[in-house]
Simulated assay, not measured.
Amino acid sequence: MNGDKRVIEELRESVCRLHAELVRYDLVAWTAGNISGRVPGADLFVIKPSGVSYDDLTPESIVVCDLSGDLVEGSLAPSSDTAAHAYVYRHMPEVNGVVHTHSTYASAWAARGEPIPCVLTAMADEFGGEIPVGPFALIGGDDIGRGIVETLTGHRSRAVLMRNHGVFTIGESPKAAVKAAVMCEDVARTVHVARQLGAPAPIAPDDVDSLYDRYQNVYGQRSHR
């Protein structure tokens, strides 16, 4: 197996720990959902094993796969979404983390096949516009990955609602992809509530651009990014 073993072990520990955030923010039920992270400097990634309880996850149970989605290290079968993650890593070299959830409100938009409109400054900040809908695709092959890449390539959103399925998010790190999944569910819920009260007011495109630029390039402690 190529790749620095110390780096891989640290990534397994980090990805294992990040799965607790999916539970903390109520983004997953039972064993559904997963997080993966690309191994720096190697054609490998680590991912949650299939069907394992979040309470039972350990760094050692996180498996290592190559970019074809084949198991390289680990005693458990990889997630059923492994081929989709592998496809994303092969075709989006800037992506180092992928997250999948069936979070309730965002998945409800996916069930309707409807993008989440950009009607909140938090959406403009994080996603730079609407959260788009990707095509319907069956689980197990790389069709889901193909849909993610086709939908998000050239799009500022780091989240996609795969039709009739759920949420996939990407990021420059696994933690960034988890943040996108948390924020996706948060805005999906808020916009749903807003629509119960009436028609949400859209934000002008120029203002969306301005908000996105400020959040991405000015907000926060820059030295820590």
Rank of each mutant, 00 (worst) to 15 (best):
Asp186Phe: 02
Thr82Trp: 06
Tyr87Ser: 09
Leu71Tyr: 10
Asn96Gln: 11
Met92Trp: 03
Val191Trp: 03
Ser36Cys: 02
His102Arg: 13
Ser53Asp: 14
Pro59Thr: 11
Gly166His: 02
Leu11Cys: 04
Ile116Tyr: 08
Ile203Arg: 02
Ser223His: 13
His165Ala: 06
Leu211Tyr: 11
Tyr54Ile: 05
Arg163Phe: 09
His155Arg: 10
His100Lys: 13
His192Leu: 14
His91Ser: 02
Met162His: 06
Glu114Ser: 11
Arg163Pro: 06
Met183Asn: 04
Gly41His: 00
Ser107Gln: 01
Asp26Gln: 04
Ala122Leu: 09
Pro202Val: 03
Ala86Trp: 08
Ala188Thr: 08
Ala180Lys: 01
Pro174Val: 04
Val218Ser: 05
Gly69Glu: 12
Gly220His: 10
Ile131Lys: 04
Val167Ser: 04
Thr104Pro: 00
Gly198Cys: 12
Ser223Glu: 13
Gly141Arg: 08
Arg6Lys: 13
Arg225Ala: 06
Asp4Lys: 04
Ala176Asn: 13
Thr31Val: 15
Tyr219Thr: 01
Ala42Thr: 12
Val46Gln: 04
Pro200Lys: 04
Val39Glu: 00
Asp186Cys: 00
Arg156Pro: 11
Asp56Met: 12
Tyr89Asn: 07
Ile144Lys: 08
Leu57Ser: 01
Ala29Gly: 14
Val133Lys: 04
Tyr25Lys: 01
Ala122His: 01
Val178Met: 12
Pro93Asn: 01
Ala110Phe: 02
Ser53Tyr: 07
Tyr219Ile: 06
Asp43Trp: 01
Arg12Trp: 04
Glu9Cys: 06
Thr151Val: 03
Thr31Met: 14
Pro202Lys: 03
Leu11Met: 08
Ser210Glu: 10
His19Asp: 09
Glu9Lys: 14
Pro93Leu: 10
Leu11Asp: 04
Ala201Leu: 12
Gly113Lys: 07
Val149Cys: 05
Ser223Asp: 06
Asn34Gly: 11
Leu67Gln: 05
Tyr219Cys: 05
Cys184Asn: 13
Glu130Thr: 09
His102Gly: 10
Pro174Ala: 07
Arg146Gln: 15
Val119Tyr: 00
Gly141Met: 07
Gly140Thr: 14
Ala106His: 00
Pro78Gly: 13
Tyr215Val: 03
His100Ile: 13
Leu67Asn: 07
Arg195Ala: 13
Ala108Ser: 12
Ile62His: 06
Val72Arg: 15
Thr151Met: 01
Ile131Tyr: 03
Arg146Trp: 09
Asp207Met: 11
Ala194Ser: 12
Glu9Ala: 11
Pro93Trp: 08
Pro117Lys: 10
Arg156Lys: 08
Ser223Pro: 02
Val23Tyr: 00
Leu11Trp: 03
Arg225His: 10
Cys184Asp: 07
Lys48Pro: 12
Val218Ile: 15
Trp109Thr: 02
Gly145Arg: 13
Ser103Asp: 01
Pro117Met: 08
Thr169Asp: 03
Gly134Phe: 02
Cys65Leu: 14
Ser50Asn: 14
His100Phe: 11
Gly220Val: 03
Ala124Phe: 05
Gly113Glu: 06
Asp66Arg: 08
Tyr87Leu: 05
Glu126Cys: 14
Ala111Trp: 09
Arg156Leu: 05
His155Asp: 11
Ala77Tyr: 00
Gln196Lys: 11
Ile62Trp: 01
Tyr25Ala: 02
Pro200Gly: 04
Arg163Thr: 07
Thr31Phe: 10
Arg222Pro: 07
Val133His: 05
Ala20Gly: 15
Tyr89Met: 09
Ala199Gln: 15
Met1Leu: 12
Leu161Glu: 06
Val95Gly: 09
Ala86Asn: 06
Glu73Asp: 15
Gln196Phe: 13
